[in-house]
Amino acid sequence: MLQVRDGAGETLGVLFERYHAPLYNFYTKLTGDRALSEDLVQEVFLRILRHRQTFRDGTPFRAWIYQIARNTRIDHFRKSRPQVPFEPEMAPTVTPGDPAQQRQESELLHKALMELPEEKRELLVLCRFQELPYEDVARLVGCGVATVKVRIHRAMQELRQIFHQLQAAPAGSGPRAAAQNVPPRRMT
């Protein structure tokens, strides 16, 4: 990144190789929109070129690039359309070898993820799929590490609830319809 900052634009190609797929997946899991995700990834690399002078030696690069990715998404939704609701075709293409039950579970889980409030979904995507340490996520979202852990726990609780609702709901109906079937949260 230091080379990119100091003018070696071709080094950006290396960064693209390393980060464009993770960034694309960051966006698809957040927005469920493939075309938009492609656009946002392009925008991230354009912003890296434009704002590379703001990168400081010693800054964790992954955290920096995800900061740009977050801002890009926030700016996009501030300027234009709202997020699209989850549709079955948004689910990632499952490889032919996947057993049917696993595929069904994956689709259901993806749907549950998309039902989560945006902030919680973003936290899970950053921590679980992008595998960012809690410390980096705390810096990204501007809160303490302990707060991130509490929020992750709450997000997982909510995901569990939504997942149960979707499992109990007949095909085609929303999770709210099956709210009565959610196992109550028990404190032991």
Binding site: H20, A21, Y24, N25, T28, K29, R34, S37, E38, V41, Q42, P92, T93, V94, T95, Q102, E105, S106, L109, H110, L113, L124, R128, F129, H153, M156, Q157, L159, R160, F163
Partner: peptide, 20 residues
Amino acid sequence: VAGLWKKLALIPDEQPSAEG
């Protein structure tokens, strides 16, 4: 909750298109 965290790995990563 712990099981669900592991199962999240079932959601596969996607490959961006060549157009990107």
